[in-house]
Nucleic acid binder design. Structure first.
Length: 837
DNA sequence: GCGGACTGCTTACCT
DNA sequence: ACAGGTAAGCAGTCCGCG
């Protein structure tokens, strides 16, 4: 009997069996456990067995149907029991994807769909049927099979911690208890190894191509999370060794004269790795190693790397490509607060580890072996540290998201938030015996959106903004609805089956601002799940992550769980409005925003009725001017009672400067820190020259304590503007400081309708330089030539179009000057722009 | 042929 | 392949103008 952590499930095509990958903590190893139950791939159909057999025969191929069984399911959309045929086949590919597959055969009958649950990957189907939870511990016995370890003692402790929480919604108790059990099991410091390779390239700036591995692998570095580091280096005639002692101080070093031998040693290593970490290993390191080895005549069986459909796999371990994970928008924004903009190892590492790649002055191919080794090692070190920093934050997030989504760790790290949430819901449906609805059924039953968006091309109306009251406002308290949209989904019972339900008596339960209504008879599935997760985050883990009375270690644990929940919850509304989401339900999505609009309007109305001025608000927040503590208390209590949602003080400002622009303000905290939202001076693409001036202004504004301090501040700000203005006029600036940095969002030839300035600059670069593509940041300055721009590296100081920069300076400052009631053009000594024309 | 008013495109931001 | 709303700057178009 072994105790081990489930990391993922996969399918073995040659054995035609599902298998589980377990991590044995004591041995630091992965082992595989093959399905002992004879579980088969299947899908469901509303047709009877005889008809199905007929359709299969008619499909003309030898579809290996194993068995057809009758099963009962609950159809939530129609609120009734249904009898379905469960059609088992021999191989997952025959369910869906292949030509003449079972799904096609079933759907060929008549006009309606007849195949259900046919688009679920077999590895996930297996997880759902057995209700397995990746990230949890299991007892594995070769004879008795696997058993989820319900470590009752620990779990009871966790539940006891929360026992007295009267705050939790009693309707959700059992759902909450279920999730708490998952979150309470500890996550081990899984042994893992990072890998990075370097490949020779004869041309400058040319990146080797994994599909055509014509050049040798010249080094590889392995770093594990137990302190072991190793570099493998290929000796080459034309290259100096350098001082290799310096490398030996940092890692074990192994030299090879034969590349084949080096590759073999790399493979020996990979075979022992439980969890392999790479940065872009799916697109480069692993395919290159595999293809290069094949090209050099190493036999396929000796290479522990396989190209899967969704990723490059290793055997028997698990491969996590961190590039994919950090690329995930939800992770980028909600877990790491947009700390990195471009997903490169250098930028992500600098943002999260405060340490980047080694800067090279020469090409990789001409580095001394010493420098090459150190460079390669650093990449592997960074890759490892991205999972170890902050008490294994990233690894813990991955495991927690696995537990929530029920996807294996390879899927979690490679798929987006909608796949996570879909999987979570599929698992719940399967576990409760509910039929997983087809997307077209949901639309047919519930309809499309009915509201009109403000932005052209969007599907429905979104949030509203309380127009800002222009000026400076002292004593601002920002009150917000905590987790507004998840709260709405919870408190209004929203779910795909409860919106516009079939019961006549529910039609009175209207959603404001829409023609929709919500079921009063049944509790919505999404509402329960999202509601439970919301309560767990808002009521339990978030407050505890800040509770000074418990140990730092415990706080960290609460923090990572609440962060994982935040990622899921923040997207839970969005996916319902995303066409490609398998539970896409526009009426639910637009009901969420409609109720949100209703709530912010109501709370604004109530505040004003109480005599509190609301100077601004956006989606889920209201900026209250000089509210008394008692008033805040009263407003919160009112919201809870009347609106059935929680409100909290999000922040308090000494003062806020508002222009008439929405999503655009500056707030100063009591301690002098400054909060800047949406202002040009904060944007990444703004030239340093402007940003520096803006930051000087921000520093001054941070020191303002009262209305009368503004007089002095005004004078100092005017001086900043004047100085910058003069510098521009006199051309006393660094060219680099005038650079606009704009990211290309698509290939250059895809800009068809217009040619924006950064594209113009990029095209100039193209003429005498290498490839430029999506994701590249284009650096350009505004010049007086016909194009109006030049790439930084081709421009000269004399070509700068000073007027353009004065305009940028003006708009940057005007955003704040508006609030202070100063006009840029009236700042003494500056003549109006138009006078120059 | 030119310029102002307008719309649309693009990027970066906010919730 | 989560959503909609906003600011800003520029590109491109239309229309009026003897």
């Amino acid at each position: 009997m072994v105790k081990a952590l489930l990391l993922s499930v996969d399918y073995d095509g040659s054995l035609k069996k599902a298998f589980l990958k377990f991590y044995n903590e004591e041995r630091g190893e992965i082992f595989k456990f093959y399905d002992p139950l004879g579980h088969k791939p299947y899908c469901l159909s509303d047709l009877d067995p005889e008809r199905i057999k007929g359709l299969v025969e008619a499909s003309g191929v030898n579809l290996p149907v194993v068995k057809i069984k009758k099963v009962r399911k609950k159809d939530l959309l129609r609120d009734r029991e249904v009898h379905m045929s469960k059609v088992e086949v021999d191989d997952p590919l025959w369910i869906s994807g292949r030509k003449n597959c079972l799904r096609e055969a079933l759907n060929s009958y008549g006009k309606d769909r007849h195949a259900w649950e046919a688009k679920i990957k077999y590895r996930n189907n297996y997880i759902y049927d057995l209700q397995l939870i990746p990230g949890e511990y299991y007892e594995i016995d070769e004879k008795e099979g696997i058993r989820h370890i319900d470590s009752k003692k620990r779990k009871l402790e966790e539940l006891n911690v929360f026992r007295d929480e009267a705050l939790l919604d009693p309707c959700l108790h059992s759902e909450i208890a279920k999730w708490l059990k998952l979150f309470s099991t500890p996550i081990p410091d899984i042994k893992r190894v990072s890998l990075d390779i370097e490949v020779y390239s004869p041309q400058k700036g040319r990146i080797p191509y994994a599909e055509k591995p014509v050049y040798p692998v010249i080094s590889a570095a392995f770093v594990d999370n137990r302190g072991f580091k190793e570099v493998l280096i290929l000796r080459r005639e034309a290259v100096n060794e350098g001082d290799l002692k310096k490398v030996k101080e940092k890692a074990d070093v192994r030299y090879f004269d034969s590349e084949i031998e080096m590759l073999r040693q790399i493979f020996v290593k990979i075979k022992e790795i439980p969890v392999l970490l790479t940065f872009n290993g799916d697109n480069f390191d692993l395919p290159y190693l595999m293809n290069r080895a094949l090209r050099l005549g190493i036999r396929k069986e000796q290479i522990p790397i396989r190209q899967g459909k969704d990723w490059f796999k290793i055997d028997p371990g698990v491969h996590i490509d961190l590039y994919k994970f950090f690329h995930n928008k939800s992770i980028q924004i909600y877990a790491f607060r947009d700390a990195y903009k471009n997903v490169t190892l250098d930028e992500v590492a600098k943002a999260l580890l405060k340490k980047g790649k080694i800067e090279l002055e020469e090409e990789i191919s001409v580095l001394t072996l010493e420098k090459l080794a150190i460079y390669c090692l650093r990449d592997a070190e960074l890759t490892m540290e991205l999972t170890t920093f902050n008490e294994n934050l990233v690894l813990n997030l991955v495991i927690l998201i696995s537990k929530i989504s029920k996807l294996g760790v390879e899927d979690v790290t490679r798929r987006g938030i909608s796949a996570w949430i879909r999987s979570m819901l599929d698992f719940e449906h399967r576990g409760k015996g509910y039929l997983i609805p087809l997307p077209e059924e949901i639309i047919a039953e519930k309809g499309e959106a009915t509201t009109t968006s403000i932005i052209k091309g969007k599907k429905y109306k979104g949030a509203i903004i309380i127009p800002p009251e222009e000026g400076v406002h002292f004593g601002i308290t920002v009150l917000d609805f905590s987790s507004l949209y998840p709260s709405v989904i919870k408190s209004r019972n929203l779910s795909y089956e409860t919106i516009n339900c079939r019961h006549v008596e529910c039609k009175r339960n209207k959603v404001p601002d829409t023609p929709h209504w919500v079921c009063l008879k049944r509790r919505g599935l999404l509402s329960v799940i999202i509601g439970a997760l919301r309560d767990i985050r808002v009521k339990l883990y978030k407050p505890r992550s800040k509770d000074e009375s418990i140990s730092k270690k415990e706080r960290e644990r609460y923090m990572v769980i609440q962060q994982a929940l935040k990622v899921i919850l923040n997207a839970s509304y969005g996916v319902l409005g995303a066409e490609n989401f398998s539970y896409y339900c526009p009426p639910v999505a637009e009901s969420v925003t409609a109720i949100g609009r209703h709530l912010i309007r109501e709370v604004t109305r109530k505040a004003e009725e109480m005599g509190i001025q609301v100077v601004y608000g956006d989606t889920d927040s209201v900026f209250l001017k000089n509210p008394a503590d008692e008033q805040i208390k009263e407003l919160k209590a009112w919201a809870e009672k009347k609106l059935k949602v929680d409100m909290d003080i999000e922040k308090v400002y000494r003062y806020v400067a508002l222009s008439n622009r929405k999503k655009n303000y500056l707030g100063v905290y009591p301690d002098g820190r400054v909060d800047i939202k949406g202002l040009i001076g904060k944007k990444k693409n703004t030239p340093e020259f402007i940003k520096q001036a803006f930051n000087e202004m921000v520093n001054i504004l941070g020191q303002v304590k009262s209305q009368k301090d503004f007089e002095d501040a005004r004078i100092r700000i005017e001086k900043i503007v004047k100085d910058r203005y003069t510098a521009l006029r006199n051309r006393t600036f660094n060219l680099e400081d005038l650079t606009f940095k704009v990211v290309l969002s698509k290939p250059l030839d895809k800009y068809i309708k217009t040619t924006p300035q950064h594209v113009k600059a990029a095209k100039q670069l193209l003429k005498n330089r290498r490839k430029i593509g999506p994701g590249d940041t284009i650096e350009f300055v505004k010049t007086r030539n016909a194009a109006g721009v030049k790439p930084l590296e081709l421009a000269k100081k004399g070509e700068i179009d000073v007027e353009k920069y004065i305009e940028t300076l003006q708009s940057t400052f005007q955003q704040i000057l508006d609030a202070l009631n100063i006009d840029f053009e009236h700042i003494a000594g500056i003549t109006s722009i138009s006078d120059f024309l």
